[in-house]
Design a protein around this nucleic acid. Sequence first.
RNA 1: GGACGGUUAGCUCAGUUGGCUAGAGCGCCUCGUUUACACCGAGGAUGUCACAGGUUCGAGUCCUGUACCGUCUACCA
Length: 932
Amino acid sequence: MSELAKAYEPQSVEEKWYAQWESAGCFRGVLPEGAASAASGGATSSDTGATAGCPHSIVIPPPNVTGVLHMGHILNNTIQDILTRRARQQGKAAIWVPGTDHAGIATQTRVEKKLRKEGKTKWDLGREGFIEEAKKWRDEHGGIILKQLRKLGASCDWDRTVHTLDEDYSRAVLAAFVELYQKGHIYRGKRMVNWCPKSLTALSDEEVIMKPQKGFLFKMKYEIAERPGEFVEISTTRPETLMGDTAVAINPNDERYKHLHGLHVIRPFPEAKIPFVLDEHVDMEFGTGVLKVTPAHDRADFEIGQRHNLEVIDILTPDGKVNCPAVEDLHGKDRFEARKLAAIKLEEMGLLVEREKYENNVGFSERADVPIEPRLSDQWWMKYPKIEEAKEVVRDGRIKFYPERWSKTYLHWLENIQDWCISRQLWWGHRIPVWYKKGLDRNELTDADLKDPSKVHVSVNGPADPDNWEQEDDVLDTWASSWLWPFGVFGWAADGDESKKAKALAELEFWYPTQALATGPDIIFFWVARMIMAGLEFMDEVPFKNVIFNGIIRDAQGRKMSKSLGNSPDPLDLIEKFGADGLRLGMLMIAPKGADILFSEDRVQLGRNFCNKLWNACRFRLMQEGEPGATTEAPAQRGSLETITARLESAKFDADDHAILAKLLQALSDYEASFESYEFNRTTDTLYNFFWNDFCDWYVEVSKSKADSEELRGNCLAIQDLCLRSVIQMLHPITPFITEELWSTFGYGDGFIHETKIPTSDELKAALAGVGVTLDQAAIVEVEKLQDFVNQARGLKAQYSLAAKNDVTFFLVADEADRVVVDSHKEKLRKLSKAGAIENRDDVQNMPAAVSQLGTIYLDLAGSVDVEAEIAKIEKELAGLDKAIKGTEAQLSNEKFVSNAPAEVIEARKETLANNKAKAEELRKLKAGLGG
RNA sequence: GGACGGUUAGCUCAGUUGGCUAGAGCGCCUCGUUUACACCGAGGAUGUCACAGGUUCGAGUCCUGUACCGUCUACCA
């Protein structure tokens, strides 16, 4: 017999098992023999999933290669691991593909920062040198996060780790670009983009986050050119751009300014005559109703400019400094500095009317955290492919969102989708596979030029005569690589020898589409929607069948986790303190379906405590076995389902035995349902209640009464084994380490726990029936009565501060039927209520009492009863009861209820009423007996 | 401005097609080391289910409106 430590100690257990799993190749996703041809049969139902060899694939949302694990990752990856481990237990071919993202802007920024510290810039190194430096940096600092995931127990197929800049993956990225280019989905064009003056690159709309900013709304006045001395007032938050103004706009319907139509104003500096233009876009209600138009530096203004053929004057440098030599005192100044100076300048000229405090929303670069600058520039754009299909697959349920409501957000975005700016002025990334003939001026390329293969070459491998060409400098948006992830990781667009291509094809055929994607709702647009479009475009099939949105982790006060607040615990510390299993379970228990999750450490304690409880229940199981006369099988023989069920002796089953197994079946079935709907909080709830309340608090306690009986012990231990084995199996996906340890300790299977198929509730039921055990559902009711009896008895004792005393005597006044029940369970009732004796009586006077479902229990106090307290207690209970009785009676006498409500509801109501009435009557008798 | 979500015990949240005297965990109070577990056990207190209407035999659950909170979205300078 093994001896277990008194408390569960996760550290050594976790290390031991993870190493064993890895070296045994447990996580490897291997194509079953002949899998590709089987999968192409098409009809394999992976949703029912019971078929052996049936594929269950998940691809990780690739974290930034240089990132570190935070609480959000913990939740997200725990979910993926649970799904993968469960799939293995179901006998499916399961795979979880890990990988990392090169994170273009983030990584480049960090490498540049490092260079700056060394007094260098990227220009000193040149493009090639810089990329080498970045790779070095990536390889040094990168991949930490994947190591950390191992600590969590993540069962990824590490041999397949993919990085978005890997050769094969890069090839896929370029191939996708080329294909879309050829189909006419990609074009180059001069447009307004979100320009990041810090990273010096364009950004997609999704990378811009709006933040409220405190500033000023300046009211200034421009003189009407045709009417000297007459002015119009204009409100602006950005006076520093007025050098770029090429018009002022008013709404054509604005009566106040009709007299100005066709006139001009004087722009103060550099002084120029600029026209009034009439544009519906101008909001008459806002400010003075006059809008300065700066086509080069504002999106809306740009559009107005287009409509009215206005000149575009760019007065900012790419890094956000004023570029306007004509205004000496502003030239070269930073945009924010220039804003102040421009206001002062206006004031000096007597043109500043007012300056009021003002808060407005300003777009910030998500990565660099500086205000973006709308800027006209040449960029590459993508018209998204398969937009309509992408909507359709979510509407018709080919892809299901959990919770479902996120599909609204998704659809809304697709309705209003804009072309995607996919070029970035960076070096770290996939360089756009476009080559221009040497000598061409790229700024002057016409649409016709772009389509002329003698001038512009687009291919994965580049032109045959590279010396005559120059490659595009821009790289692709990182998301324009990760949107291919669900098939890119399996070698899509593989190049090389035939066997490599064939392997990729077979892999894709088997693993694609993936089963589920677990991610945060914050990247629905960035990633989820784009992957769906890419999947439909390149694979002609959705990339995943289910999308599980996990909530955003916040701290206990509901604030976002952030480095600056210091409210983000290091997951590794938590693992150190509470164990990976505890952390996983704790996260899952508090993870409601897709809402925000408020995290605090005591949640993880819950998980840890649960593990310890499981540990001790198992420990107790082993201790029981050590008693004389116990079964003496060696551990390896204790365990298989067949061995255990063979030890059951159905003839010896009492109500508790029936009830615990019936509840076990119910728990298993609830557990299965919770996985179907990805309601993991339900999963943990089910396990927690069954294991802690039903099994530990009741059945194990009941077992203690049977321990002395050689006749009953064997069957009782077999039932404990069945429950423990099942709980361990059910828990395994959630808490893999402790369950593996216990699995091997008990010898419940021959190998690793996941190698043994978990029986379904139906299979378990059948296995029981196979050995003659059919469960009596009525036993559950009987056990509930026993529990009520014990609760009432304990309550009585506690009321008189005798909870700890174990030699009190209870007198029971009950009818014949209840007496029989009590008598047949008397020993355990006595033990559980910690009584010296339970004696039957026909009548008892002057003792505190409680009315249980098995009769009225009196506590023998040898006459010293606190009458007033007793009466108060009874009255309180009666009040609640009477309220309920009245309600039910009213309902039952309501003819409409009786004729409309379903029969079972009415029956249940009648039964409740009868029970309540009986109890109330009993209580009244008691009260009368006390003189109340 | 639009869309979506939330409002249930001191705290965090369950509550699945309307059908219990509305639940759990934590926290709090009392008691306790009895054949696992103090990371535990026993007992206890605690609710106008945000508010106002409506539908229904019956509403925490459905409908309408209001208030507050949150998230996403939007070119009001």
